[in-house]
Design a protein around this nucleic acid. Structure first.
Lengths: 164, 164
DNA sequence: GTACATTTAATGTAGTAACATCTATTAGTG
DNA sequence: CACTAATAGATGTTACTACATTAAATGTAC
């Protein structure tokens, strides 16, 4: 629970208005909705280009990160889905892709024979280690704004999702 | 060019941390990057569900809105692409879909015979008019935050994209 | 004006997403 | 326990995305 006092300089060039050539928005909320979609598409496109050079897709990377977060503890396919940024992906087939590249391995779960346990391999860990510095740099592209501003946006986005 | 003083209450439940079950982030920028992608996926999923009931996709709707914005002035396919939220879509085939539904019409451009002019039809305008109140309501789901907060996020997102 | 490069939109293709269905296993109920 | 419902994950199908290629028209350099 925090209180934020912000003093922020905002440039009025290259705004969402000029980017999508829409002069006027019905409300700040409309502008925000379109800006969120536009900015995230922009972000995901850059992400796609970045990962393409490493023979991996953003979703596959997302799964690998989840697996690494588990350390050596196996995780069920359905639990991977729950933690993904894009939960509409078919996790089953995503794991297939990682298996084919020897980045993950799959064992049947002893407690529940319907479930399948997934663990990251040494090779998967190596790939992530290799990517880490570049991903950090990629994420820190946002440092044009202050850490406090970044946290404020995060908190407001949380609030928006929570409202449902 | 504006100065913002903000006083904001932030709830600490149902944050991105609990949503994707990641306890800790490397930096506020990492949290923001993941939160943007997660929130926009959430938003787009809801959008998809909404439009599904009206036999139209979010991208098709986006094109229709651009066409309406032109009033009766025709617009080239390439100019539609420039104004789209997701510029990776194949605008040519999107316009095909609108044509098939009689929501838009296509005429060859007199100045440049390579180009194709697109205009919205009466039927397209009617569909948009029908959707307008629902879309407004959909966008205003964000009114859990203040208009000033919405504008602040928009401005910060603009700043982030501008930095490149 | 001819030759070559560029632009505009359409189309071909591979991979993926969205959604439904299927099989195997477990949970719940009488 | 038998029976039905629910769950986990795999798989089939359709549509769409991302990307490359093509075809036609225009621009540009000589």
């Amino acid at each position: 629970m925090y209180i934020h006092y912000l003093f922020t300089f905002i440039a009025d060039t290259m705004s969402i208005e000029t980017d999508i050539k829409q002069k006027k928005f019905r409300s700040p909320y409309q502008r925000l909705a379109l800006n969120l979609i536009y900015t995230t598409n922009w972000l995901e496109y850059k992400q796609l280009e970045f990962f393409k050079g490493h023979d991996i897709t953003p979703q596959q990377y997302n799964v690998l990160r989840i697996l690494r977060g588990q350390q050596t503890v196996p995780i069920k396919v359905s639990d991977i889905t729950e933690r993904m940024l894009d939960r509409n992906s078919n996790t089953s087939r995503l794991v297939d892709k990682l298996l084919a590249k020897n980045l993950a391995k799959r064992t049947s779960c002893p407690n529940d024979r319907r479930a399948v346990d997934v663990v990251i391999t040494e090779e998967g860990l190596q790939l992530l280690a290799e990517l880490d510095p570049h991903v950090d740099q990629w994420e820190d592209r946002f440092n044009i704004i202050t850490p406090e501003e970044a946290d404020l946006i995060s908190a407001l986005l949380d609030k928006v999702r929570e409202a449902e």
